[in-house]
Design a binder for these strands. Structure first.
Lengths: 225, 225
DNA sequence: CCAAAAGTGTTCCGTCTACACCCATGG
DNA sequence: CCATGGGTGTAGACGGAACACTTTTGG
């Protein structure tokens, strides 16, 4: 247990962001093509190096902010990736972070500015380095957590219809859900509140808009769906 | 997305091992007192720096091997810890790993050699730096996984009694389990095999010894308890 | 002979699942 | 007027939880 710093080597540490969005009944990922070597032209997650004066979480939030202009976004660490040759240039250890954002909050102009696009999860291309592994792990975690934590709301606007919410679950879990059973379960959750607003965009009849009451949830943080 | 290595800073990266053991109906942790500055004399996890030629997983396994002499141990990454000032000396980012070992496999002489001891989880002292956070996260993960992955067997000898197995679950979950229900569930799992060996150490009557058949489990890796 | 741990089934209750039809409206 | 998505209830199956007594044997 006698270890001294200077006998050891330093390495670059980066963060990579797996940014999930939801639109058109599909789960999407924000991906770009690398415009730098190594790996120029390959599909890639958006990332950046961790600087001296910022924690890992700070770095991940900064990178996300640079890309999307969004703050206070749900982000969770997915894990550290550290194979020796994972980066063909230098030794770089990367910490993957997963973010859930509402596509509508995302300024479309930034897509071009940063040369990124929303890619359907089911059409995932081969990504640079070990980024596919990162995405895979992020999805595994997301699937596991979606039923025990109120994450789905991060992918939707403040006001949403139950059908939209159901589509989010179906997209993430990859299976159809019975409408009546789903709505029965939602009704039992008191902090998913029905508003008296009606959405007439997606249906002729109009659908009730609901809202996730975060404060009420935090009272006793129990979530089961 | 234009980033160049040399504009950025390198940092030290270490691994810290949260080593769980089980004995005397209790979950235990292998802890030592730091014999180096900063933090000399404080309780701490056992760790080491990641070297140039090894992956994170390799580093964790090496550190575990140095401490215990054991290889092919169940290990899982817990997460990366990267607060700017988490190490009072230099900027060090640390990746926490959780290991499950059978206390009986651990050579007692190494305890003194490395100045570490088994500490009951319920008597956890204040640890160096953010090591308490690492332990907390490891336990959360362990609790979550113990019912959906066959982890418990790593904490027991090859041959074990059902009472021992139940004690492992009770220690990890922190609650009493009904004996009949527990045994009913075990009986339904075909790759937990009853041997015709009898353990006469812990009971006068003698208890049947069971074994986890890993190969049979891998056939179709489904576990629910 | 008694203390200590092993071993064994049944009932009840709540939860999950399957399932089909009417409603309101815009085009 | 009809196509589209919104909204609603019930019955049967299944799985989890509660629960107490007999057995064996070493000391």
């Amino acid at each position: 247990m006698t270890i001294y710093y200077n006998e050891h080597s330093k390495v670059f540490v980066s963060v990579d962001c797996i940014i999930f969005g939801f639109e058109d009944k599909k789960l999407k990922l924000l991906l770009g093509k690398r415009n730098m070597d190594p790996g120029r032209g390959e599909w890639s997650l958006y990332g950046g190096f961790v600087e001296e004066d910022e924690s890992l979480d700070d770095a991940a939030n900064r990178v996300l902010y640079q890309l999307t202009g969004l703050k206070d976004i749900y982000m969770k660490q997915v894990g550290a990736f550290g194979a020796v040759d994972r980066d063909p240039g230098e030794r770089v250890i990367s910490i993957a972070y997963c973010a859930l954002i509402n596509v509508k909050d995302y300024d479309k102009h930034l897509l071009e500015e940063h040369e990124v696009e929303w890619v359907n999860l089911e059409d995932m291309p081969k990504l640079y380095s070990d980024h596919n592994d990162m995405v895979k792990k992020a999805i595994t975690l997301l699937r596991r957590r979606i039923s025990s934590e109120p994450l789905s709301f991060n992918l939707l606007p403040d006001l949403f219809t139950l059908t939209q919410l159901q589509h989010v679950y179906e997209a993430i879990l990859g299976e159809a859900i019975d409408k009546r059973n789903f709505r029965k379960r939602i009704k039992a959750i008191e902090y998913i509140e029905k508003t008296d607003l009606i959405d007439k965009v997606t249906s002729k009849r109009g659908a009730a808009l609901y809202r996730f009451n975060k404060e009420a949830y935090l009272e006793d943080s129990i979530f089961k769906l």
